[in-house]
Design a protein around this nucleic acid. Structure first.
Lengths: 186, 186
DNA sequence: CAAATCCTGTACCGATTGGTACATTGTTGA
DNA sequence: TCAACAATGTACCAATCGGTACAGGATTTG
């Protein structure tokens, strides 16, 4: 019985990709087993709560990833303008110019929203707040910074939807360039 | 055996709502049967192709609905500015300020995208083209009209995602107001 | 070396899945 | 009146669902 060296955390990226591609309902256990190369035994060993616990873990990891790479720099980087620019670059890579779905956004549109509502809300709330902070520090008037931040975060999500539907990654990149423009100080 | 007076077309709104709430995978036949009040016999009588045919029919009806109420006015209404304003109003009602999901957008983020790709692409392509037409007629420079149109259509989709995730319908409405501003002639 | 623990595969569970078959009914046109 | 047809409910199918049980290898700890 060849023991896999796999740690629980090593599974998360594979799980994330599986949920991204097939959604919560669509990602069956047998599909997950195939994708991870693990049997149900191992999966339930790592995630006694089944699919729900897998999604929770994936969402937590995504939030941590964005916290480290995007949110924290936006909040406290010495150069907020650079942090904003970095955000657009990171996001473009992360979503593969709209070829890759935002799991948090996709779950928000599904009926899984009710089950994971808190994690979904947190992710977007943190993003909007961090970006608001950076926009303010870069010179945007505090009254309009939150609105602009919501426009941008929402705009990114919409760009994923539109680019995927139209099958045009260029559209994703073009929209992000436009949003980046609006983020620059007035 | 009390015969229902229901015509096939009368089922479409119920089917649409069921797919919106549960997604393609999540909307099981028994769920659909409950929602419509029909047995499998009737469902397969009206839709021999099963769920796939139901979704096709729903998407066709959605496209026709938008064509009549949104796309056509944008393209050829005598008052393009009024058509644009009407679009924002119609869309706000239709998506219930973000409480209701855009089925086309949601399917675009799921793996059902591959199966219904053409219909999804058509919907957004028609929308973007019609809005581009209206924006041009209202005075926007042709070079930038397509980009602005994509920004707006994508922005609406993103507003649905964000408002649902944050559970804040006001955010949806605020973003739409902002998009409406940008649609006004420069 | 032995015992405790971790990990894994397999078999199995009841429930539900999408889909088919068909007999039966209400309605309609000749 | 009566055949043709549209619509319906029920029973059924194999396949798959999420989840459990567990035996037994692999590994670590003593």
């Amino acid at each position: 019985m060849a023991r896999q060296v796999a740690q629980r955390d090593d599974l998360l990226p594979v799980l994330a990709e599986t949920f991204r591609e097939h959604g919560y309902e669509g990602a069956s256990l047998s599909l997950i087993a195939t994708a991870t190369g693990l049997g149900k035994g191992s999966l339930y060993h790592f995630f006694p709560g089944g699919k729900a616990e897998m999604v929770e873990a994936v969402l937590a990891e995504i939030e941590a990833w964005f916290e480290a790479r995007v949110f924290a720099p936006l909040r406290q980087d010495d150069d907020p303008a650079a942090a904003i620019a970095q955000m657009f670059g990171t996001v473009t890579d992360y979503f593969r110019s709209g070829r890759r779905v935002c799991l948090v956004g996709a779950l928000s549109l599904s009926d899984a929203r009710d089950r994971f509502g808190q994690a979904l809300r947190r992710y977007f709330a943190l993003w909007v707040e961090a970006l608001t902070e950076a926009l303010t520090r870069v010179g945007h008037p505090p009254e309009g910074a939150t609105a602009l931040s919501e426009d941008i975060v929402g705009g990114i999500q919409g760009a994923v939807v539109l680019a995927r539907a139209l099958d045009r990654p260029e559209t994703f990149e073009r929209i992000l360039v436009c949003l980046r423009e609006r983020a620059r100080a007035a």
